[in-house]
């Protein structure tokens, strides 16, 4: 499981403000929000690529706030995959194993196993240049899964793919997540993806967490206008309650 406790991070005029999220082991969690909401920054804080200004991060109960990225047990797939262009597909997948001093025989068996899991055995000798978007996505996932991480972070993993491939890849992501029982955080601005894969979701806007919960909760009980609009509640009405059953339309906050 992964838990953040009031983490804050600021860079320039942008600020992540006291984000607290608790994701249970083996759950598929999706973080939604418009572009610029701070989703990628949040992921980078989780995997240690950005040093948070305050708050704590726990993985499986251990405080990893000051742990180096390589020792957090997190697998991170960035938005455009960042596959190493000077290496072949197989070398990309082997990269983390080599960095961790894995024995050659063990490395080969892990690469084969992961290649089979993601159906990319035929790509192993290929260079990165020339792979399709879907192939790159699977290779970047393989590069991370081969290390058997405790947590998987996916930054807009399907945003560069066409509609059909996107649905296929989402289904595949969910299937792999279920099979491996991996705690997963998937970042997206696309609601359809959320309904395809997520157990729970959170909505982020301008560095502030708006609501966390199951998708049906977010749809049926949005905590504010923004969440309601984001979840496309077209018949949503904003009004102000005085606590005695009287409402004043057009003010704020409660969902009907």
């Amino acid at each position: 499981m992964i838990r953040t406790e009031k983490i804050s991070f600021h860079i320039g005029t942008f600020e992540l403000q006291r984000l607290s999220i608790n994701i249970a082991k083996g759950k598929y969690f999706i973080l939604l929000g418009p572009p610029g909401a701070g989703k990628t920054v949040f992921l980078e804080c989780l995997c240690g690529l950005k040093k948070i200004n305050s708050g704590r991060i726990y993985i499986d109960g251990s405080d990893v706030t000051n742990t180096e990225p390589r020792a957090r047990g997190i697998g991170y797939v960035p938005q455009d995959y960042a596959l190493f262009p000077h290496l072949s597909v197989e070398q990309n997948i082997a990269f983390g194993l080599r960095a961790r001093g894995c024995q050659r025989k063990e490395m080969q068996s892990k690469i084969t196993e992961t290649g089979e899991l993601l159906d990319i055995r035929q790509l192993m000798s290929r260079r990165i240049y020339g792979l399709s978007g879907g192939e790159k996505q699977r290779v970047s996932l393989a590069r991370v899964l081969v290390l058997q991480p405790k947590i998987l972070l996916l930054d807009e993993p399907v945003c560069a793919l066409d509609e059909v491939t996107r649905q296929e890849v989402c289904a595949q992501l969910l299937s792999i997540q279920r099979r491996l029982g991996l705690t997963t955080i998937h970042v997206s601005h696309n609601l359809e993806e959320a309904f395809t894969v997520a157990d729970r979701a959170a909505i982020l806007k301008a560095g502030i967490l708006q609501q966390v919960g199951r998708l049906d909760e977010l749809v049926n009980k949005p905590s504010n206008d923004f969440v309601a609009r984001f979840m496309r509640r077209e018949k949503h009405l904003s009004c102000k309650c005085d606590g005695q059953g009287n409402t004043e339309p057009g003010q704020s906050c409660e969902n009907r």
């Binding site: 980078e44 995997c47 240690g48 690529l49 180096e68 990225p69 390589r70 957090r72 997190i74 697998g75 991170y76 960035p78 960042a82 190493f84 990269f95 983390g96 960095a99 961790r100 590069r143 991370v144 290390l147």
Partner: peptide
């Protein structure tokens, strides 16, 4: 691109690695 180095850090490399 620094992202390559960042990804390498999450994959198990030190900064020198």
């Amino acid at each position: 691109d620094r992202r390559y180095e960042n990804v390498a850090l999450t994959l198990g490399c030190t900064q020198f690695g």
